[in-house]
Design a protein around this nucleic acid. Structure first.
Lengths: 337, 337
DNA sequence: GTGAAAGCGCTAACAG
DNA sequence: CTGTTAGCGCTTTCAC
């Protein structure tokens, strides 16, 4: 930059201001400066700028720990977040969640980022507490328990709506017994928000409709889905309507159903909460709530970015995407009782 | 840091050296310093450090442009890269590929990163040229044409091996007519390395075995897979062995097969090049070359990171993962001719 | 062993 | 409108 100033015959600060536009510069001088700039192929050094302004124009996505084998659908959030940061001309740093939540403030103070997007938020999330205390800029994909979210910005899928819609839909098709093939037990125990809400909503919906229903935890692997389903179908009067939370296990579920000699959708209906992409991948394509992963990622980042520009943002959005009927669901089979 | 120095009664530089260990410090002083550090909850400011040392301890993953709707499996690379950066205590910045390749050097000179991982490398990739000219640290997932890779480090799946293995496998099962349900036409036209190699290897393998075979481009959506397959099966003597490059379209392929009244694997065998996760997801589970997305991501980042520590790395690795036989493939049906 | 001081490349008062 | 100067928070010569 010193070179540029010299070549243009002006001072450092003039060059700086010409670039930032933070004060009026005569057209003629500006001209000289920009000419010098691309004559020298000069590029501003972001790091130095960041050090001086205390703004890195970079945000982070705090990614759940990678120890769990399957990170699967979560990855789709990334693509949404990335799109937003791109549009706003920010950088995106990926971080894995430090186990000890003590790590978090450490990272923040290192000054590498201006804010962050949190995902896999627990009902009572210590990270949220910390970030809040430190008055840090952040938004969430997901949200905490009632009362934990005041003044926080987030986007989430409305899992209560989603599960209730699934149950109602199956109920309308005369399914009397259903099952929720659920989240992993680990996530439930950690009280990850959406997981807890989904399970609660499920039981509530059953009650509303006066139906019976079972529920099994299930890890995010095909084999686990297979086993869970197989055991479900071993009951005396097995469910005819299945609600699936994790798309990665449909393969296993399908296999168990087939091995039992049953057919989808004539014997068993399957409804999921999953991205349309996934829904279309399976055979038959799955009826389900269209989980807008990418949109959630995009919105959450957008909220943060707007917040960083000084805008007073106050958004708590719970998306209620529609249920798309595909070919995995239908009228309940006539009962033999 | 000034505060720390004051509290410990030493000078700035002593604190700095205590932290970096770059020069001997008396145990007693060290003691005082560290005590002061956590008394004040001091955290080194990475940005400032980076400015002084010209090392950001951050690398970037150059992500293909997001305009294409389906980024799908690529995302799995990210998780591998992330794991490596984590282990080496580096940060990971995600970048989308600038369209104009002119953008690239701009970004590099901004000084935000120490090196980068390139993906979706084309046979004659202008980005590689640029990076090379500028003597920039980088590694690739994938690789360019023969002669383009001298002195470069990369990891890749050996697509020639992969496709040949698939063809041979089907040939052994007496399949006489096969088809490659291919990459998107766009990627092929862009001469993305693996795509071109896969197609070439396919024709070569057919010739070796004296077989006929067809080939269709196919975008990465279920519907496209459906249409491609449907038209393939409309021929007089349709193929009995299908090789699938993109796992996202299997759903569509399966549907087309079923609608034609055919069964997998008795009428048609399906073989893919895809992650085991995907393979297990589908019904029946797919026979295929186990694409180690995560491993490729991990290795590529590791190469870069080692390179950055000054090590003279010289690795060009082409993985040849085994073909896992699952349930989508079997003996060719007896011909009616 | 330790301290003083000169940067890293930019921004932002403060003067003119 | 433009130039001077003092930092941003750390590292690293160079002296002691």
């Amino acid at each position: 930059m010193a070179d540029v100033a010299k070549l243009a015959g002006v001072s450092l600060s003039t060059v700086s201001h010409a670039l930032s536009g933070k004060r009026p510069i005569s057209a003629e001088v500006k001209q000289r400066i920009f000419q010098a700039i691309d004559e020298l192929g000069y590029q501003p050094h972001m790091l130095a700028r960041a050090l001086a302004t205390k703004q890195t124009r970079t945000i982070a996505l705090l990614y759940p720990s990678l120890t769990s084998e399957v990170v699967g659908p979560q990855l789709e959030f990334v693509s949404g977040v990335l799109q937003a940061t791109n549009e706003y001309n920010y950088g995106l740093l990926l971080w894995t969640a430090p186990d000890g939540d003590q790590e978090l403030p450490r990272l923040l103070r290192q000054g590498m980022i201006d804010g962050l997007v949190l995902m896999e938020v627990r009902l009572d999330d210590p990270r949220v507490r910390l970030l809040r205390e430190h008055n840090y800029h952040f938004t969430m994909i997901g949200h905490g328990d009632k009362g934990e979210n005041e003044n926080l910005n987030f986007v989430d899928l409305d899992f209560v709506y989603a599960v209730q819609t699934c149950v109602s839909y199956l109920a309308e098709l005369d399914h009397k017994r259903m099952a929720l093939i659920g989240p992993s037990e680990q996530l439930y125990k950690q009280k990850v928000g959406y997981v807890v809400r989904a399970v609660e909503a499920y039981y509530q919906a059953l009650e509303q409709h006066g139906l019976e229903g079972s529920f099994v935890f299930c890890d995010a692997q095909a084999q686990a889905g297979y086993e869970a389903t197989f055991s479900l179908l071993s009951h005396d009067s097995p469910p005819t309507g299945l609600i699936v939370l994790n798309p990665w296990i449909i393969g296993g579920i399908m296999r168990a159903i087939h091995e039992r000699g049953l057919l989808v959708p004539s014997d068993i209906s399957l409804v999921g909460i999953l991205s349309p992409l996934m829904a279309e991948m399976s055979v038959p394509p799955l009826t389900g709530i269209d989980f807008p992963y990418k949109t959630l990622g995009y919105r959450s980042a957008e909220l943060l970015l707007r917040q960083l520009t000084g805008e007073k943002v106050n958004v708590q959005e719970q998306l209620q995407p529609k249920l798309t009927v595909r070919r995995s669901s239908g009228q309940a089979p006539i009962s033999h009782m």
